[in-house]
Design a protein around this nucleic acid. Structure first.
Lengths: 134, 134
DNA sequence: TAAAAGCTTCCAGCGACTGGAAGGTCAAGC
DNA sequence: GCTTGACCTTCCAGTCGCTGGAAGCTTTTA
């Protein structure tokens, strides 16, 4: 199958497949006599694996590690779990950051009329006047 | 004051101040006879405003709009609030995405022993075998 | 046979910086 | 007066993960 078919079956765009190959995340595909990349079912599975791992927010580099572990029969699950734990910590940190932004923005928005008047606690707050608009 | 002092007082790195100038977020600073950028207290306030808005996750482009609104006496608070609402929606969407990742990753991790055995539901899950490891 | 679809490589751009090189300027100490 | 070191300047390149587009093959379809 050509790259387009592999893209359709895996959900990874053809451009992205080429990109993954170029950065060494996946092995270079075999080529037809005329230079077209040729893929098999296993390649599609690999691409799906990559897609799911990326969907969980693992970096391309970490997906590389996960792929290597996946293909290694002698791996220990501890290594995989360690990677997952780090990713989980990242997620939690980001959720917390966003939560703080949400809270701050929410406080500012609450006091803003949102009408034609120029008075605006959001801008005052950004300008560093925390009590303005009460 | 030179760029270094402005950076210290505003919390925005000198490199970043130059970058903000280069992309038109802030007005070009005046220059000394020898070409050094010169800043006043008002510039520092502007930089702090930018810093706070960026801290809430507004894009540089949106910070530009907020700055313009801040400096416009005739602005309506409605415009500001609309920008804030969009940002809030972004935040909520991201929190939700991260929450879903968290849940999925959590399910996979729960079943993973994390020891020397190669058996690993995290990898099976990424490979698309949802019931593996139960 | 010709057009359309699909493939190839290569280069550029996104956002928001950040690092580094090469070189000019300024203040302090000797 | 000179040196040293901190500070400033510009410009280019790199980060991350793609994505768009140009120019030019190949394959399929009508």
């Amino acid at each position: 199958m050509n790259i387009g078919a592999a893209a359709r079956r895996s959900g990874v765009p053809a451009k992205t497949i080429r990109y993954y190959e170029s950065v060494g995340l996946i092995a270079p595909a075999e080529r037809s006599a005329t230079g077209y990349r040729v893929y098999g079912d296993r390649d599609v599975e690999t691409l799906r694996f990559v897609q799911r791992a990326r969907g969980l927010g693992f970096s391309v580099e970490d997906v590389g590690s996960l792929l290597a572990l996946w293909q290694d029969r002698r791996r220990s699950s501890a290594e995989v779990k360690a990677l997952a734990r780090r990713r989980m910590a990242d997620i939690d940190r980001k959720i917390e950051e966003l939560g703080e932004m949400r809270a701050t923005l929410g406080h500012l928005m609450e006091r803003c009329h949102g009408d034609r008047r120029p008075d605006c606690p959001i801008l005052s707050g950004l300008a560093g006047n925390p009590e303005q608009g009460r």
